[in-house]
Design a protein around this nucleic acid. Sequence first.
DNA 1: GACACATATTCGACATCGCCGAATATCCCG
DNA 2: CGGGATATTCGGCGATGTCGAATATGTGTC
Lengths: 254, 254
Amino acid sequence: MIQAIDRAARVLTSLQGARHLGIAELAAALELPPSTVHGIVKSLQGHGLVAKEPNGNRYMLGPALLKLSNVYLDTLDVRARSLRWTAELARRTGLATRLGVELFDEVIIIHHDERPDGTEQMPETGLSIPAHASALGKVLLAYDGALAETVLGDGELRALTGDTVTSAKALTRQFAQIRERGLAEELDEAVLGEASVAAPIADRSGAVVAALSVVLPSSDWPAADAVQNALRETARNISRELGATRWPPLQSGE
Amino acid sequence: MIQAIDRAARVLTSLQGARHLGIAELAAALELPPSTVHGIVKSLQGHGLVAKEPNGNRYMLGPALLKLSNVYLDTLDVRARSLRWTAELARRTGLATRLGVELFDEVIIIHHDERPDGTEQMPETGLSIPAHASALGKVLLAYDGALAETVLGDGELRALTGDTVTSAKALTRQFAQIRERGLAEELDEAVLGEASVAAPIADRSGAVVAALSVVLPSSDWPAADAVQNALRETARNISRELGATRWPPLQSGE
DNA sequence: GACACATATTCGACATCGCCGAATATCCCG
DNA sequence: CGGGATATTCGGCGATGTCGAATATGTGTC
């Protein structure tokens, strides 16, 4: 790992957490001399990855990230091929759908269809949720042993609500069932009042590259059979379009 | 500018342009030895800024960019304070609105309200348009002399359509009028069939930090007085909310 | 309005860290 | 199964980034 790039990335991560930071604050966060941090920040700024806040001498994330991110979404094959299917799933079930991929110990939502009931809803694309606390994440963990190991191994898991499952053992037990059913569930584990069901999406190589979920109010739990079937069917159709030969897929990694 | 970080950023830019590239292709694009590029790419990959494409040995942009970009949008004060106003503007005029900031020689759209006619429209947030070919960009250039110099100075300007104004002289002449009226216009200069009108948004320091535009079909050109007034009024209100004391603002930079 | 503090920024010398060429591993295609 | 092209690893040289001290800038206080 190249030192300067590693440090630059850590600057971005710090700004991601703190929104606005001065050079001295950044230096303290990274445990580096201010002059070193200054050089890094200036380099990032030169490419628009970091910007100086209008009034003041603190720094924040830069607009170039938005452009890069937009291209990132465009390049995702899974996403492009899923759009038609997930829209149809949202329509049929009357529920919001999410499509997520792995980002270290989290799931990041790469597409979100709003509940088709016409109410005002917040766009969720770009949101990230700890993998162990979401149905999307559980699917990804269940099918990727190596990933599960790194996520579960790292000491204690963070609880987002009182119902978050923080025990590695309990989660590992769930994973076996998830692989059997091709479905993962979650009830109030990330957000109170919210539950979700997720299914794996595999590609040509048989690897799970994304997860698809529907979100429902906890009061509607458990999800109707019709919803579960529609979800499975949609995930299977997308996987087939990506060239997968079997669904549910086989475990990999580990 | 730190060399390694500069090179890393150029890797991202290359991937932004080409979507998928192998190490050898990247090396050719950056005119560096493959082993050097490999080190850079691995470092970026370690932070999720770059990802290996599922099947194959090429690389693409990574999911961490989506998370960073999402936080970037959240940290933008102008954006947060504009949302209510632009939604209202879209409603009143029946037109799509765009909010953009500068990104080198382009404008990047940080918020987009769709035309409220209920038709299917593509979200435009994250899109970037050459500054000289958009009303948004012209506003930013007109009020920032230093920016205008770097953008217009760089040799010939790229034509996006037959109507794109590519002459630095002609544009500079427009800038004076834009500052007088507090409005910039554009007709078929970026996309055929599409015209737009934009106004500056200033902050507490009096600097123009963003531009707001409405988009209309070329056939409806020129925009009705009511639309122009609503646009000016909205831009003024947002500026006031940001602490600006006068509108239209004064030129800065240069 | 002037002083003092805190912060960002510049600069240069030392030595570290990353760069590159060659060797190896891996993948793909015929 | 063999050949070509690609990614990846490794280590020594030296260019490059790092860091401390000095300077500039701005901010709050008296």
